[in-house]
Design a protein around this nucleic acid. Sequence first.
DNA 1: CTCATGATCCGCT
DNA 2: GCGGATCATGAGG
Length: 279
Amino acid sequence: MPARGAAQLSRRMGQKKQRLLEAEQHPSPPDRAQTLSPLEPCLQPPATLSPQRSIYFSSPKSHSAQLGSEFFDQPAVPLARAFLGQVLVRRLEDGTELRGRIVETEAYVGPEDEAAHSRGGRLTPRNRGMFMKPGTLYVYIIYGMYFCMNVSSRGDGACVLLRALEPLGGLETMRQLRSTLRRGATGRALKDRELCSGPSKLCQALAIDKSFDQRDLATDKAVWLERSPPGSGEPPVVAAARVGIGHAGEWAQKPLRFYVRGSPWVSVVDRAAEQNARA
DNA sequence: CTCATGATCCGCT
DNA sequence: GCGGATCATGAGG
């Protein structure tokens, strides 16, 4: 196939971007100030406070709504459902806050789950987060180039995969992060629906990488969960088969993926499942 | 819209 | 060595 050479060539770029992501620690990516708030680099937040000086105001206002460990301390299936509607927040080092409402999750219920990385009780350095306390993140690399973000639930080796968000804030920064990090970076602008509609897309959009593995979602300062605004009620939920696990026999069929019915932000819609569950 | 394909490399056997 | 909890693209309807 003649077209091959050109394709390969343009792929080389992908690696560097990947490494760039691994580095993360840096405030802002290659992008200019653009959408990021025009803060002077030398301008500190309201003067003075040394790191741990004040216990009273030690947590920023934005953290007041941060959901604590109680929320995460429930089995994978109820937790996967409870996540729907809640808001995931990511605070970048330059202060930019990115937020998105969770609209799609998957439950991995533990050692008996043939599709889980913890199947058969496997405990390795990689999946250790699955066995840590509820609320612990398990971030891993998939297909050599993407990340997936899970949250440990109650139960050994059980967790919830975050699959899609409805972007609520920081869309332009998300767009930049996605454009910079994705492969095949043809300049074309991404639609809003392409920002967070998939487990690895949302990791790119929120700048979540391996450095977040084993962090605690209940206490972390750079990523946390907020209760959905009151009045938004409980969204109608569809239970469907999980995505991308063709193997794993009967476990592949079980309805362990949950998403908000009718949401345009979901990564994969399952018409059959929706038909089935009609009430 | 639905396929089909290839990229790419770490973690495990 | 092998394969994967994915994504972007291109062809065809």
